[in-house]
Design a protein around this nucleic acid. Sequence first.
DNA 1: CCAAAAGTGTTCACGGTACACCCATGC
DNA 2: GCATGGGTGTACCGTGAACACTTTTGG
Lengths: 229, 229
Amino acid sequence: MSFTYEYPRPALTVDCVVFGVDEGGLKILLIERDIEPFAGRWALPGGHVHIDEEIEDAARRELEEETGVDKLFLEQLYTFGAVDRDPRGRVVTVAYYALVRLADHRVRAATDARDAAWFAADALPPLAFDHAKIVEVARARLRGKVRYEPIGFELLPRKFTLSQLQRLYEIVLERPLDKRNFRKKILAMELLVELDEHETGVAHRAARLYRFDERRYRRLVRQGFNFEI
Amino acid sequence: MSFTYEYPRPALTVDCVVFGVDEGGLKILLIERDIEPFAGRWALPGGHVHIDEEIEDAARRELEEETGVDKLFLEQLYTFGAVDRDPRGRVVTVAYYALVRLADHRVRAATDARDAAWFAADALPPLAFDHAKIVEVARARLRGKVRYEPIGFELLPRKFTLSQLQRLYEIVLERPLDKRNFRKKILAMELLVELDEHETGVAHRAARLYRFDERRYRRLVRQGFNFEI
DNA sequence: CCAAAAGTGTTCACGGTACACCCATGC
DNA sequence: GCATGGGTGTACCGTGAACACTTTTGG
C-alpha cells in the first residue's frame, strides 16, 4: 500500500523528554536504537504520528509502547524541523516533555525489552539526531516552568516530606535554597495538606508527610492566584 | 509530478499571528481567503512548508508574500494538529507569532493585492479553521512574555516616549499602570537611552524620546540580569 | 549517647505601591 | 489663558534573605 501526493511532504514524528528526579538528581529516560540510522545509540523515545491520531496521543502511545510509562504530565515543548536533522530525509518532530514519579516507573522502564534506561541529565551518552538539542530546550523549559507552576509535584511521590520537596527544587533550579525560608513560603501558600503520617525507616527523626492539594490550587488560580517559588 | 510514501503523511503548514499596537489597542493582521475551504473568510497568513525549507523560513516567506511584512520579531508558538482541523484532510500547522512596528507596516499590508488588513484583537471577524484558537494561544503567550522579556519594544517605533511605552504595556497586559512607578522602574533598569529629541506636532508639552539599548540588554543578560515589568 | 535530619522566628534591606501637583506647549 | 499631557518624590508596607539552635529518632 502506498500514498501519493502532488507535493512532497515531510514525515511527522514525536519525541519525548521524560524527566524524573531521585536522590541522585535529575534523570532522563532514553531508549537504545536498534535500527539505522544511529543504531546502538541512545535516543529520546518517540516515533511516527499516525494519520488519524492526535499528536499528543501519539506521544503518549510511543511512551507507553517503548517504556511502559503512562498517565503522566505531558506538555508540548517545541517543534524541530531542521532540513538536515534526519539523514533519511525531511522529518519534522513535535517534541514533548513529560514528568514522572520515578519511584513508580524505575523498574518497568529499565527492564523493558526495548532497552530503556534512566540517565543522569548531567551525564547523558551521545544522542541520536538532534536529540541533545531537544534535551537542552526541555531542561530550560523545566527550569523556567517549575518556578511559576506547581509541576514539581509531578516528580515526587504523592506523599512527600518538605525536605524532599526542597531537594527537588534545588535539583531542578540548580541552586541551594534556605530551609526555613522555603518552608515558610510553601506553607504560606496553603496548597499542601498536612497528613497524619510520617516517614518510616529513617535513622533520624521521621518527617511529616504532605500532599499537594490540586483542587485547592485550581480554585485559587481561578481567583487570580499565582504560584511562585 | 507526484510523491509517494509507504505510510500516509499529514500536510505541514505554518500560520502566523502578527501583532501590532497603535493608539486604538492591539491589532492582528489577517488575510481574506480566496479559495475553498472558507473562501471569503479571514484567516491567519500562512501556507505550506517547502520540503527543503526551514519551518521558520517558511513562516517568514509566507508573511513576506502575503503581506509584505519582513524583518520582524518571529517566534514559534505551538503546533496544532487536531485531526479534524482542516476539512481537506490531515494538516498539521506550526504556528508562529510575530511583532511589528505598526506605523512601518500599516499601509503596505492594507493595500496588498491579497487583501490583508489589521483588525482590533478584541473584535476579530469569524476566522477560518481553528485560527481563533491559535490567536487565543498567541495572545496568552504575548501577555506572559512581555512581562519578563523586552519584546514590547518590537511593537513601538525605534524612538518612543515613555508614555507610549506605558500605553503599550497597558494594552498588552490589559490593566492600568501607575505613571510614576512605571517610569521609575523602567529607567532604573538603565536599558533606555535618553535622546536629545522630543515629539513634534502635539498640542501639549513635547515628550522626550528614548530608544531601547539592545546591546546593553544582551550584556546585562549575560551577567544574570532579568528584565521584568 | 551519638549521628542525622526535622523543625522553628526574628531582624533587616529592598522593592512594590499608593498618591498629587507644577510645568511646558500649542492653539 | 486654557486644555492637554509631561514630568517629578516620598512614605508605607510586605516580601525576600540571612541566619542558629533545639528536638526527635534509630542505631
